[in-house]
Amino acid sequence: MGNNRDRALIIRCKRGDRKALGELIKNYERPIYNAAFRILGNPDDAADVTQIVFLRAFERLDQYNPEYKFFSWIYRIAINESINQKNRTRNLQSFNDEEMAVQNDPEIAIDADRVSDIIQASLMELQEDYRVVVVLRHFSDLSYRDISGILQIPEKTVKSRLYSARQLMKTELNARGVT
């Protein structure tokens, strides 16, 4: 995601250009929605969070420092809002239970969709700070440095959380028949 392009779009938005607004939202709607979905495990909550993220971002755009990457800034809002949403709605357990109930049936063939569901269910088993780094690394495809900037933690912490998270994911996936 190009920061120069984002900056140009923001300037146009500030002049009232709704097409630029549409373009900015188009660029980030999908990644923000997916990050939120992987953290929350629920499509409705992810859609709510995506909308809130953009509202918050535009509400606070005066606070955005263009010297920094726009995507880091909006991702930070997305992570915070996802965590807030998770705290607000405690409906994740039912999702996990359902997924776990399905995946433990050895008679059911594991196809790509099921693997995706199992991955999501395994992700939901991770503690939140581990899940967030996994999402940013693997689903948002961000570097250690970017993750460190977004979460405002040292790179060393990013690495150690990823290390622990992957070890746990390995155990979870093995237990659910994904090898």
Binding site: C13, K14, R15, G16, D17, R18, L21, G22, I25, K26, E29, R30, Y33, N34, F37, P43, A46, A47, T50, Q51, F54, L55, F58, A112, V115, S116, I119, Q120, V134, H138, F139, D141, M169, L173, V178
Partner: peptide, 27 residues
């Protein structure tokens, strides 16, 4: 496994809903 998990499609109309909910200053 993590990287290959497919993206989820945002729900229909979400983008429009977001765009419509944000007011910009007049041109």
């Amino acid at each position: 496994h993590l990287t290959d998990a497919p993206d989820k499609e945002p729900p229909w109309g979400l983008r429009r809903k977001i765009i419509d909910s944000i007011e910009l200053p007049s041109m």
